[in-house]
């Protein structure tokens, strides 16, 4: 028995030493230490040994088992290390192969810009409101102090609907001013993004449909100086803290005093000098960006406010125009033709 044990042990250690792979090592382990392995059998064989011999023989069996187990462990580590070294030395992938991608979606530039604009005003405490695109003459014109024969009411400029003599596609977001103020008492500050329409064919500089953002603020004392403050803040958030902003007198039926607001040409400013041939400002150095003014007393009256006790300002800007400046786009049609090769250039 003892010799047999010694022989087993020597054979096992030799076989372990000879193992070249972890699979071979595992086979050897099973042959000696597995459920039916020789050493396991030997342990089982102890039962047939006379009881007096068992302790000594048992110790020998255990020694042999532990020696083999230790050898397996050592060989295992050796072989794992060798396998790792082998892998590190030889396994190579082509990292330049293309990645496996899911298609990437894109937001429309007009929506990106609209969100940007709205977010600035929401950050200043403005509420967001919306209104219908199919409007009537009262909300689109009359309540906004357009005289009965104001040229803007012309069928040349406005798309009318066949359903009623008064029905039209709103030409600006200002009707929402009327709807909102009629339903709400000051103080209020509201911003209104939306789609508006004009009777134009789609060409590089015109579209029958475009986007506007309207804003207004009314309380007991809000003044032209406040209007300047809010718009300067807005424009600098949008175009950069250094952006030059200027206010020029202008005329709109629904504001008095009225102003046109310009920003310094973004391209010339970036270049550090006015470029007489600049294709963005055409050498004028300033870009018309929005219209604004103090809400006309006739408009305040139309919504049931008393112009002697409340006053406010309103402004409107073209989202398309800001997107054009923001992305350096020269053709308005790109926004509405939805060529995926154009859209795919915008971030997700």
């Amino acid at each position: 028995m003892e010799e047999e044990l010694a022989r087993l042990r020597e054979a096992a250690l030799a076989e372990i030493a000879a193992c070249g792979t972890e699979a071979e090592l595992e086979a050897v382990r099973v042959r000696y230490l597995g459920r039916k392995g020789s050493l396991t059998e030997a342990v089982r064989g102890l039962g047939r040994v006379p009881p007096a011999e068992r302790p000594a023989l048992g110790a020998l069996v255990n020694q042999a088992k532990e020696a083999v187990e230790a050898a397996v462990a050592v060989a295992g580590e050796r072989l794992a290390a060798a396998r790792l070294a082998e892998s590190l030395a030889h396994d190579r992938i082509d990292v330049t192969l293309p990645g496996r991608r899911r298609p990437r979606g894109h937001a429309h530039p007009l929506r990106l810009v609209e969100d940007e604009i709205v977010d600035v005003f929401v950050g200043m405490g403005f509420q967001v409101a919306e209104g219908p695109e199919v409007e009537d003459d009262y909300h689109n014109f009359a309540a906004l102090n357009f005289g009965a024969d104001h040229p803007a009411r012309d069928a040349q400029d406005t798309l009318f609907l066949a359903d009623g003599p008064d029905l039209l596609l709103r030409t600006h977001t200002s009707p929402v001013q009327i709807r909102y103020m009629r339903a709400t008492q000051p103080p209020l500050r509201v911003v209104v993004p939306g789609t508006v329409y004009r009777r134009d064919d789609l060409d590089p500089t015109h579209s029958p449909m475009f986007q506007q953002v309207e804003g207004f603020m009314v309380d007991e004392r809000v003044s032209f100086a406040d209007l300047k403050g809010v718009l300067v803040h807005f424009l600098r958030r949008l175009f950069g803290a250094e952006t030059g902003v200027r206010f020029r007198p202008s005329f709109f039926p629904f504001t008095e005093p009225s102003a046109e607001v310009d920003i310094a040409c973004v391209r010339c400013a970036a270049a550090g000098a006015a470029d007489p041939a600049c294709r963005v400002c055409r050498g004028r150095q300033w870009l018309e960006i929005l219209g604004a003014g103090m809400i006309h007393p006739n408009v305040l009256r139309a919504v049931g406010y008393d112009p002697e006790t409340v006053q406010g300002f309103a402004f409107g800007l073209g989202t398309d125009r800001i997107a054009i400046l923001r992305y350096g786009i020269e053709d308005l049609r790109l926004f509405y033709e939805n060529d995926l090769r154009f859209l795919a250039q915008f971030p997700s």
Binding site: R104, G105, H106, A107, H108, Y336, N338, L340, A344, S348
Partner: peptide
Amino acid sequence: IAEGLAEMVTL
């Protein structure tokens, strides 16, 4: 957009 679609604004 996460599903890989592009947003459009059509007339």
